[in-house]
Design a protein around this nucleic acid. Structure first.
Lengths: 213, 213
DNA sequence: TGATGTCGGTGACTTTTGTCACACTGCATG
DNA sequence: CATGCAGTGTGACAAAAGTCACCGACATCA
């Protein structure tokens, strides 16, 4: 039975939720699977649910006019999609792309429940506010980087963030992927990576980069 | 008496608030004045109130490491500062600068009231969510521009936005100010403006720019 | 083992943006 | 009205980033 699985996820990932809220979510949330590479959300799409990630990893990015994929941030188990909350509440369409980068499971909470949850469960309200705050801050960092920093610094920041978020020092990234995430060209990334390698910050290998220190 | 003035502002600028909420705000909000050029909020500052603009104009910008002022958006009468809500709720420090660009009046709502307002007044809750949504969207546009567009396009977008937000075709901006807002140099702006003038999009004058069409 | 495709390296070049230097203009102020 | 200053114009150059062309290394698979 799905309820038991959902219950387990909620207990593990959202322990701060009050018991009544947990029960409410267990009875009304739907579990949904996404394959790696599958889209959770697309620009212009209308959201009907708020999304809580419970397994896997979701990449949020802004799509440029000719299909560029400008990376913003990752969502991990325990995170909610701030945009799905916002769009859900207002019935607005999404402004960003969300893609599962590996096998991912999410809880879908019908938008019709949002009002009630916000009003009746303080821990939910705090969770929502905290979600907004975190994502807002992430966007501010993104803006800082592209507004004030040159490519080399942006690349260094990007690699560091990848190492932190994905919790590994072996970054499974091709130069093309990085270039796409930073909206530049592969050659630029290749050259900058070489400099970083010479400076001893990384070690390059085929298909992955070892992040040192 | 201040209550009467506050009441008038609320009636005029926030007609969508339910009567009980209006009464609550009238009794607990404080009116505060800022001179043009005065800071409402500074990076690292701790917020103790949620801020509603009722008169004037507030400029939100991100501060770079060497004092650059990267423009994000304006707040006008009827708007709330999304960041003051977020920071207020979590007792976090602000990540941006907010500066009054003219004589400005705001309503300050003590953070201690936020929980109660969110829970008890549906129109407040909607207002907050809508505020988040709008500002989130603004940030996404900002990111679009700096991530995907070249200076000329960014400048065109910037001028258009100024004309819209400030509701005038006579933009009281010096080239230096524009350069600072877009985090580039005055010379670049001067040259691009000349191109735009030649293309017939604007007409330059000393100390102001006429935005045509 | 040869064919193919992805990944990465690199030189040469262009374009865009940033920097420096200096000149000009109109306004304000004493 | 002389002086100073903020605002602007502009040429020359430097630096950063983007583009193009092409190469080689490696993996996979028939």
């Amino acid at each position: 039975m799905n309820h038991a699985i959902i219950s387990e996820y909620i207990e593990r990932l959202f322990p701060q939720f009050e018991p009544a809220l947990k029960r409410k979510l267990i009875e009304s949330a739907k579990l949904r699977d996404f394959e790696g590479g599958e889209m959770l959300m697309q620009t212009g799409q209308n959201m009907r649910s708020t999304v809580l990630i419970v397994e896997g990893m979701v990449k949020l990015y802004r799509e440029g006019e000719d299909g560029q994929e400008f990376f913003m941030y990752y969502l991990q188990p325990g995170n909610a999609c701030a945009l799905s909350m916002i769009c859900a509440t207002k019935q607005e369409t999404s402004q960003v792309m969300a893609k599962a980068i590996e096998q991912t499971k999410v809880l879908m909470i019908p938008i019709s429940l949002m009002d009630q949850l916000m009003r009746d469960y303080k821990t939910w309200y705090y969770f929502v506010i905290e979600t907004y705050r975190m994502r807002f801050e992430e966007l501010l960092f993104v803006i800082d980087n592209i507004a004030f920093k040159a490519m080399d610094e942006r690349l260094a920041f990007y690699l560091k963030k990848q190492a932190t978020d994905l919790n590994t020092k072996e970054l499974q990234l091709t130069h093309s992927e990085i270039a796409s995430d930073l909206n530049t060209s592969r050659e630029v990334i290749s050259r900058l990576l070489k400099k970083m390698e010479q400076a001893g910050a990384i070690k390059m290998h085929r298909n992955y980069i070892a992040y040192l220190s």
